[in-house]
């Protein structure tokens, strides 16, 4: 790396860091104002609230039926993680190990749900789900969420599987492992770090997936982020602090999983998965 030490480049560097600092400062201030508000007794026209309280959490908990919402959220997320893991890893294995006619078309179908924004395909998807009666149900929400997560798992796993030497599998077969044993004793241990990383990212993304859940969820199949949207949308009905308390609950839920995920993945992986597509 070449480090330039001229005056103009020093000014330039200063400007870049000021921008980054400004961005991060505003980000934290924004999060901070939500957290502050959620603990405020009354906060009008001053820098800081008049007093502090935790009662908004208990009121949010009962007003928004957070217990039910959280339960649904985790059920949805759990089902999405398990199903996209099963379908995604097996498909990724086939795509990483075999070259066959029509592979490019399949890759395109897998890539598109990640590139097309959820709101665009969500509306026709919701239409179909409403007409088949799936919309509003638990499985309707899970199905909608699978559309981007299965391709995501596939694209994360393909390069991961490709780097495992196929001769290792051949060797296991030579030593008498059948397909099942091969999978359990050879592939699983090798793939586990990749699967774990992929599924944690799916988990974080599904908790935060608003559009698809919003379009297909009914009153009993709302996840936390959709409930939060309705609460903000209907602001004025409830106290602001109560909504902010709910927002904090949502933040904590998401960030806890993000922190866990970051122990296994690089932060850039959260956005750059689309780059992992194999070269055609």
């Amino acid at each position: 790396m070449i480090r330039d030490t001229s005056l103009s480049s020093k000014l330039w560097i200063r400007a870049v860091w000021i921008f980054v600092g400004f961005f991060i400062l505003n980000l934290f201030a924004m999060i901070g104002s939500v957290v502050t508000s959620s603990f405020a007794t009354r906060w009008l026209g001053t820098w800081f609230p008049a007093g502090w309280t935790t009662r908004w959490y208990s009121s949010a908990w009962s007003e928004f039926q957070l217990q039910d919402v959280l339960l649904v959220t985790f059920e949805v997320v759990g089902a999405v993680v398990v199903i996209s893991g099963l379908l995604g890893v097996t498909a990724a294995y086939a795509l990483a190990r075999r070259d066959f006619a029509g592979k490019k078309i399949i890759m395109l179908v897998i890539l598109l749900p990640l590139i097309v924004p959820p709101i665009t395909f969500g509306i026709p998807l919701a239409t179909v789900l409403y007409q088949t009666g799936f919309a509003g149900t638990f499985w309707g929400v899970v199905a909608a969420n699978l559309v981007p997560t299965v391709p995501f798992v596939i694209l994360v796993m393909i390069p991961f599987i490709e780097q495992i030497d196929p001769r290792l599998e051949a060797a296991a077969r030579v030593f008498g492992a059948n397909t099942f044993k091969l999978f359990v004793h050879v592939l699983m241990p090798l793939l586990l770090p990749g699967i774990l990383a992929a599924l944690l990212l799916v988990l974080v993304r599904t908790i935060a997936m608003f559009e698809l859940t919003f379009l297909v969820a009914g009153p009993t199949s709302q996840t936390l982020v959709v409930a939060l949207y309705y609460a903000v949308f209907a602001a004025g009905v409830r106290a602001v602090q109560s909504i902010d308390a709910m927002a904090v609950v949502y933040m904590v839920t998401t960030l806890v999983w993000l922190i866990i995920a970051l122990r296994f993945v690089n932060p850039t992986q959260i956005v750059t998965r689309a780059k992992q597509q194999p070269a055609h």
Binding site: V34, S37, V225, L228, V232, V240, A247, L255
Partner: peptide, 16 residues
């Protein structure tokens, strides 16, 4: 902010 998603950012910015 990517992880928190658009809904929370919207709520935060309404305050901030």
């Amino acid at each position: 902010p990517i992880t928190l998603g658009t809904v929370l950012i919207a709520e935060g910015l309404l305050n901030y």
